[in-house]
């Protein structure tokens, strides 16, 4: 705890009307269609949604890693008032990992199988020092770097000897810890974790999330957790945003969302969660998710919504603050905006 206490300035990330489109031969897919949210200093914010809801695309967009045929088609990504969406690529390279780090989906399977753990962590550090060319040109000694690697491994709950191992010698949980170590190597102020535990069993999952939480606290960083598991969100994040069809249906403090979900989709997601304590029946949702090429008119959720009424097929609802810190995008609350 003593070596790396809160060396990161708390930062705010403000996403405004973000749009990501994929141009396919069969038409334009609006994977992210006007999403706005704020990641506050030091908080844990969750984006939850089913496959195709756009949540992973948001993670890639924040890192400016959308590849053709996809592109950021609009909106702003404000990190400390600097718009990452408009940043030239070479400037963006010095932001990645140093200020915003991503633990991508399936990261543990993307470790280089023929490289020792140590080298994979050092490569990330050195790439950035080269990027900030001139100022610290190769100033670090080999011993400094190895010491830094050892510190990083210990901070994610691994022994320093793991530095000398190859990925195949590690369990899934250990590999995921290495990925966290790589992500935090440059002490980012924002850590984006995309389904960091989806391939792990529940016992290891909890250990990894505890590690991520401890690392975050030490750095004073914010975490954006992306996932589909409402249970994991309930246990880890302070606030949660619920995605459906490329849009945010609802944002609010986790406790309040679980106690009283406002959007009918969130209500369905929460009521469909099984519990061991109560004798609930499980709820299923009518209909199928729409084709991303052909979204419904008005509210994208209206064909499946049990509470749809006249305005829903006609007008797109706007995400609005209907109670303090509770944002919802649903016509049911059109008259409920507090002033």
């Amino acid at each position: 705890m003593t070596t790396a206490t809160t060396q990161t300035a708390a930062a705010t990330l403000r996403v405004e009307d973000l749009r990501v489109q994929f141009h396919t031969p069969r038409g334009v897919v609006r994977a992210v269609d006007g999403v706005s949210f704020t990641l506050r200093p030091g908080e844990r914010f969750g984006l939850v949604g089913e496959s195709g809801s756009g949540k992973s695309t948001i993670a890639l967009a924040l890192m400016r890693l959308i590849k053709p045929p996809g592109r950021i088609a609009g909106g702003r990504i404000l990190l400390e008032d600097e718009d990452l969406a408009a940043l030239p690529e070479d400037a963006m390279r010095s932001v990645r990992m140093a200020r915003i780090a991503l633990i991508p989906q399936g990261a543990m399977n993307s470790l280089n199988p023929v490289m020792r753990v140590k080298q994979q962590i050092i490569d990330g550090i050195l790439a950035h020092e080269r990027e900030r060319s001139g100022s610290r040109n190769g100033s670090r000694s080999k011993r400094d770097l190895e010491e830094r690697v050892a510190e990083l491994l210990e901070s994610v709950g691994l022994r320093r000897e793991v530095a000398e191992r190859y990925p195949h010698e590690l369990s899934g949980g250990m590999k995921q810890r290495v990925c966290i170590a790589i992500a935090i190597a440059l002490r980012p102020s924002i850590i984006i974790a995309d389904e960091p535990t989806s391939a792990l069993d529940v016992v290891v999952q909890r250990q990894i999330m505890q590690t991520l939480g401890a690392v975050q606290a030490r750095l004073g960083a914010s975490v954006l957790l992306i996932g589909h598991d409402m249970g994991l969100m309930a246990q880890f994040v302070d606030r949660v945003g619920v995605m459906y069809g490329g849009k945010l249906a609802e944002i609010g403090p986790t406790r309040e969302i679980f106690a009283e979900p406002l959007h009918p989709y969130t209500q369905m997601l929460i009521s469909s969660l099984p519990s061991f304590d109560r004798e609930t029946s499980f709820v299923k949702l009518a209909g199928q998710p729409h084709s991303p090429l052909n979204p419904p008119s008005g509210c994208v959720f209206h064909p499946r919504c049990p509470r749809a009424f006249e305005p829903c097929p006609a007008r797109v609802p706007v995400l609005r603050e209907v109670r303090p810190d509770r944002f919802v995008s649903c016509h049911l609350y059109d008259g409920a905006v507090e002033s």
Binding site: G157, V202, V203, R206, Q207, G231, L232, A234, F236, R255
Partner: peptide, 26 residues
């Protein structure tokens, strides 16, 4: 252990707090 490790949709579960001996991996 398995059942306690399941993150439940109840934000009051204190799931993040219980420390489990980290062996068994490998």
């Amino acid at each position: 252990l398995l059942i306690r490790s399941i993150p439940t949709p109840d934000p009051g579960q204190r799931w993040m707090e219980e420390v489990v001996a980290s062996s068994g991996e490998g």
